[in-house]
């Protein structure tokens, strides 16, 4: 924390959210995920270097290379984010640091979107100006070989292993409820498509179809931009505190309804309204409730209910219960 604000205890009038450590089993998953992401970085670095060395003047290669460069963002934000996000809340950041991952997610998605659009325009221009890509030769073991072969080999390396990495990461992302990791896993899984498109582009050049290269690059660019807008919308939604959604953002989380049902199921509660917001990996819930009676035991009941509700889901960091006269 090093100087980032005082500890909560220093300023009793300010309240910081309860310190929240991951459950032990999730800690193990997190460790596993961090190790996988570190390996992803090593692998990506090797693919990026290989692609760069064989880049030539192929637009499709450039697109595949840029995509690999961009796919460095999620693992890095995950590795940095998972360190920052699990810091304890302090007076300066009373809600903790979980939203750091959402910020990383936002920045990454903007980069994806604009790179994709730029690449799309660039590829389109190459098609319009009918630029014929030149792919020369390389010296390999004393033979002069067409460089296209090396390009395709590099693309295979950039496409195939990432499928397995993506498949391994996907369940971890679900368990940790981590959007960055989830996006990363999906991107890795889909990376073979990029590689296949680029290989088709190079094969096209090889068959004398000059436009195949720019066309393949255009397809890759579209894919990048599409990913970008999808993640951007999720990130903006998260920052707007929209109703929590599942990792793939296709369905609403059931947690708010569960909370409300649990509250209404209590004998001393007449009616309740629940609002849940997502803060990176964790949820904060606040509920308005109308108690049936207002005896001195109400405060104790509220405290116990909050503790019980928190056990509904490990991601639920705080439940705030506010007794009211009536609901609007």
């Amino acid at each position: 924390m090093r100087g980032l604000g005082k500890k909560p205890g220093d300023t009793p009038e300010l309240r910081a959210a309860a310190p929240h450590d991951l459950p032990a089993d999730k800690q193990r998953v997190l460790k596993h995920a961090r190790r996988l992401e570190a390996w992803t970085l090593v692998y990506l670095a090797s693919a990026i270097v290989l692609l760069y060395l064989t880049l030539g003047s192929s637009q499709a290669m450039k697109a595949a290379w840029l995509e690999d460069l961009l796919s460095l963002i999620p693992p890095i934000s995950f590795l940095v984010g998972s360190r920052v996000a699990h810091r304890k809340p302090c007076a300066e950041y009373p809600y903790g640091y979980h939203r750091a991952t959402t910020i990383a997610y936002l920045v990454g998605s903007v980069a994806l979107l604009f790179m994709g659009l730029w690449l799309l325009v660039d590829s389109g221009l190459k098609l319009i100006t009918a630029e014929h890509p030149t792919i020369g030769s390389v010296q390999l073991f004393g033979h002069t070989v067409w460089q296209g072969w090396l390009m395709m080999a590099a693309l295979l390396w950039s496409g195939l292993p990432s499928i397995f990495l993506g498949r391994k990461k996907l369940p971890l992302a679900e368990e940790l409820h981590d959007k960055v990791l989830h996006a990363d896993a999906l991107m890795n899984k889909a990376d073979w498509l990029t590689a296949a498109a680029a290989i088709l582009g190079i094969l096209g050049i090889g068959r004398g179809l000059w436009w195949a290269d720019a066309a393949a690059a255009g397809v890759i660019a579209l894919d990048i931009a599409w990913d970008g807008q999808k993640h951007l919308r999720t990130a903006v939604g998260d920052l707007m505190d929209r109703a929590p959604r599942t990792l793939d953002s296709e369905h609403h989380e059931t947690l708010p309804r569960q909370l409300r049902e649990a509250l209404c199921g209590l004998p001393w509660v007449e009616a309740a309204q629940v609002r849940v917001r997502e803060d990176g990996h964790v949820f904060y819930a606040d509920a308005l409730l109308v108690p049936r009676e207002r005896g001195p035991e109400l405060v104790k009941r509220l405290g116990n209910a909050a503790e019980d509700l928190k056990r509904l889901d490990w991601r639920l960091r705080e439940v705030l219960l506010v007794p009211v006269d009536r609901l609007d």
């Binding site: 630029e131 014929h132 890509p133 792919i135 030769s137 050049i205 004398g208």
Partner: peptide, 9 residues
């Protein structure tokens, strides 16, 4: 000439 990859090889 640009893009004449067989010839270039």
């Amino acid at each position: 000439p640009p893009g004449e990859n067989r010839w270039l090889l």
